[in-house]
Amino acid sequence: MEKVFLPVVGDKVLIFELEDVKKLRHLGIVGVLSGTLSAAPQQNVFLGLPLQLSLEDVIWLVTNEHGILIDSAKYHEVEAAMLNQADWNSSQRICVHDPKQDEELLKKLAKMNLSDDKLILKKKQLQENKVENFIIIPNVTPLPNIDSYTIPLDKFLSLSNHHELISNYQVYRSVKDQGFFILPGIRFGGKYIGYPNDPLRYHAHFIINQATDFKLIDLVAGGRLATGVKKVWVIVGEHSTPDSPKKVEGKKRDAVEVDVDQTEPQPDIVDQLTKESKLKSFSIEWAGFG
C-alpha cells in the first residue's frame, strides 16, 4: 500500500482526504473526526473531515513506514504561489448542478397549489436545464510535488511538549501491536481506550494507563471506574529488574532543560521510541461483593 501523507498543521496532523481516512482505517488507525459536516452543521454527534490523529497514531504510522509527515503550510504556500490562477480556477468545478436543490424547489412549488400540468412542466424544465446552482468548497487543493515537503519525525515531535511521551508511546505500541484499535482516553478517564476492532461497530474493552507510581487507592479508583462502565482497567509498565538503571526520559518538560540537553549527547528520540521494550500489563476489575 502506498504511504499516507500526513499533513502537519500547527503541531497536529489533520487528514482532509477521504481516501486517506479509509487507508488509515485498514491499518487500524481511527483518529478523531473534528470538522463540521456541511450537510448537518448544527450537531456534534456526527462530525466530518478533517480527521485528527493522535500523536501516538502519528508516531506509529511513521515508524512503521505507513505514513510521511508533510509541512502543510509550506507546501500550500509554495505550490499555490506557482499556480496559474485562471487555469486553476477553470479546472476546478466550483459551481455544479445539484439535483437536490431542484427537488426542494419543486416541493415548495407543490405547496403553492399549482396545477399539476404546470408542476410537470417545471419539473421537465429543471431536468433539461440543469442549472449550476451549488457552490462547492473542496476539501483539498490537488497541488503537485507534495512529497518534497516532508518533515522528519523528530522535528515534528519537537513542535509540542508532551508528558512522558516515550513511555506512553511504548504502552500504546504494545497494545496496538496486539491488534487493538486505540482512541484517546479522556472519555473514560484513562490515557487510552482499547477496542477489539473498529470502534464504529464494537464497544471498548479496556481503559489503559501507564503503570507508574501506583498507590492502592488508585487501584480502587481505576478499577471501580472501569468496571462501572463495563470495561477492564489495564495498566502497562516496563518490566525492570530492581537494579536496572532508571530509564532516561528523552523529552523534558521545560525549555530550559531542553537547552541543556542539546549540549550533551542524547539518544535520538526516534531510536528511543522504536527500541524494544519489555512491558508487562495487568488487567484490573472491581470485585465488590454485593
Binding site: 500547527g10 478533517p50 502543510s72 499556480l83 473542496p138 476539501n139 513542535l159 509540542s160
Partner: peptide, 25 residues
C-alpha cells in the same frame, strides 16, 4: 473573484490560518 483570485480548499485554509500558532486548532 474566480478569474482573479485563487480559491482556497479547506486544507489550504487550515494551513494558512492555523500554522503560526499551535494552540489555534
Amino acid at each position: 473573484f474566480e478569474s482573479n483570485l485563487v480559491s482556497l480548499s479547506l486544507a489550504h485554509l487550515y494551513a494558512l490560518a492555523f500554522s503560526h500558532d499551535s494552540t489555534l486548532v
